[in-house]
Design a protein around this nucleic acid. Structure first.
Lengths: 335, 335
DNA sequence: TCCGGGAAGTTGTACGTATAACGTGACGGT
DNA sequence: ACCGTCACGTTATACGTACAACTTCCCGGA
């Protein structure tokens, strides 16, 4: 009981009266036809009594694989990425894998390098919402790579998991058009990643052919205060005042609502505001935000499944997950 | 270039014309007086040319230490814990350590066990906001343990890092009293951890001796909707209606604000609402929340420093970090 | 001349695991 | 009686590293 050193497979072997190799066979699961049921049971019991846990460092060294994936996200304080992590971690755990995080707005590569100092021997990388060049030398650097929220890649490139962002934007646009809005300002993120480029592009495309529509754009950083300022600009710009602000995220929408109230405009009756992401924030503000629900956990889960498939050499079809508009109190018929 | 196998210290040795041991000495940093500067430089250059990275599994196996810490948090989607992680990860990286996360509302122990399936060989554990029994058999199980946000422990128990939560609550209470509020309802979390027990206790203590004060309590789960319902109960309870809701967190405060608006009460002029934690949410809602700023990153950073000290046998004094009230638009003089 | 001793490396080994390669009886067919 | 086969294990080895112990060379003092 006072033996502080952790038991090894050799200790288990001694206890069970067999060789270390037999312990490894039994506990490794591949003993069919190599070890009798009686011996196997004795080994399992000995392992239980000693509370044996295999030394993962030794196993990794022997196998050359670590059963650990690296998840690169721009920032963990954004709820979306915390949920992506949760999904990835769940699938990983189900498969005996671990996930180590690397939050970095700039991605990884020669400059920011999680492999040297930040350590962690890695079997593969899952990267979310990264610019293509933020992963320089990873995909082709021999390390399996899966990309999330980065758009459909080349067929021979890394596997991808994407959200139907364009479809989500289309739903928002049609929702606003259906409510009679014709003067709309897009409060857009200034982050240059696929997900935001496709949002801007889809907004333009969907409103292009509609008669009588006036679309403008205000770009700002992904935070409440910049969004508030952008919304103030949008609402005090010359020309007809927008009746709806289509925001690239719930955080931006919250900022837009603050601006509206400061300017004496009632949301939603004088100004409709739509969000995106459907974070818990959407239900925390008043009125609740019309938003687009993203299956964040599922993105992480599918990303991990893709990586596992990649590691076992199975083919990985690209994957696009559906999103759904959730209409709430922040949007209403145009005045 | 086409050699996909990663170079080992032996490859570096061959390239530099020395033995593997010399490479290890030089790259390990402890070569003063054992290896000439010229040879050392040759080794470093060879390592650079081959882009050599030590195999961490082998190093861990050899040293018996993994230079990895486990951070246990109740939930990663709560911004506070994401920030704690960020602080811990920063200090870890500065010291060549890694951090692996284990989000679990129930803590770890025989039941939920991150060491078997969830893998990750660990040198120590940092646990945040855990009930004492949620860590059964870790601290005394031979694994170094640091506890965050769990209150001052026994002098011979695990090191602790705490926030001056009681002081924060005192500041809030005095702020509300100073604004003339005398009928106050405490919207309290129903989570039974030290941080919430101390909040409830401090609210009672601070208001106990004040003449004319009527304190009531509504308890609810840590989410917007439960908080909204609790606030509705508080505001429609028999007896004098509270002029202030003192909430255990910003999330609860957001729910309280929704309730107020639904009942036609203007915040802050007819009802003051105070939050806690000072999450980004505090600035996202309207009006901005009066809250208590917690140095979350610093909690994580100090926790990691404490663990590092513990691992090198240095004494670890308990640590309490100050918090500050941030008065904003959600509190105003009592009507 | 001989020896002590330090500088500069090298040789050898162990960490704990997974698995390839190799026994070793027993049994059964011819 | 002899050999092949099968069931059940065991022995030996390699993974890449860090470090203890050992060698080698050279220089200075007696």
């Amino acid at each position: 009981m006072a033996e502080s050193a952790r038991p090894t497979s050799r200790d288990v072997a001694r206890q069970a009266g067999v060789s270390q190799a037999t312990v490894s066979l039994v506990l490794g699961g591949k003993w069919r036809g190599r070890v009798s049921e009686r011996t196997a049971e004795a080994v399992r019991q000995a392992a239980g009594e000693l509370d044996y846990r295999p030394n993962l460092a030794a196993r990794s060294l022997r196998l050359g694989r670590t059963r650990t994936a690296l998840l690169v996200v721009p920032a963990l304080t954004h709820e979306y990425f915390a949920r992506v992590y949760a999904g990835a971690a769940r699938v990983a755990e189900e498969n005996g894998f671990g996930v180590v995080l690397y939050p970095s707005p700039e991605g990884i590569g020669p400059a920011r390098d999680p492999f040297g100092s930040a350590r962690a021997a890695i079997d593969g990388v899952i990267a979310s919402s990264m610019a293509a060049d933020a992963l320089a030398g990873i995909g082709d650097g021999g390390l399996p790579l899966v990309m999330l929220d980065s758009g459909p890649g080349a067929p021979d490139g890394p596997p991808t998991v994407d959200l139907a962002v364009a479809d989500g934007i289309r739903q928002v646009v049609r929702h606003l058009l259906g409510l009679g809005h014709r003067t709309i300002t897009h409060i857009a993120s200034d982050v240059d990643t696929w997900t935001f480029r496709i949002r801007a592009q889809t907004v333009r495309e969907e409103l292009a052919g509609v008669p009588g529509v006036l679309l403008r754009t205000e770009r700002c950083a992904l935070d409440v205060e910049p969004a508030r300022q952008a919304a103030v600009r949008a609402l005090s710009a010359p020309g007809p005042r927008p009746t709806a602000l289509l925001c690239d995220g719930d955080v931006l929408a919250a900022g837009a609502c603050k601006a509206a109230r400061a300017l004496g405009l009632a949301v939603p009756h004088e100004l409709s505001v739509s969000g995106f992401d459907d974070l818990s924030l959407a239900l925390a503000v008043d009125p609740e935000l019309t938003s687009v629900r993203l299956p964040a956990e599922e993105v992480g889960a599918q990303g991990m499944r893709a990586l596992l498939a990649l590691l076992s050499g199975r083919p990985v079809p690209p994957c696009e997950l559906p999103v759904t508009l959730v209409a709430r109190g922040s949007t209403a018929p145009a005045p």
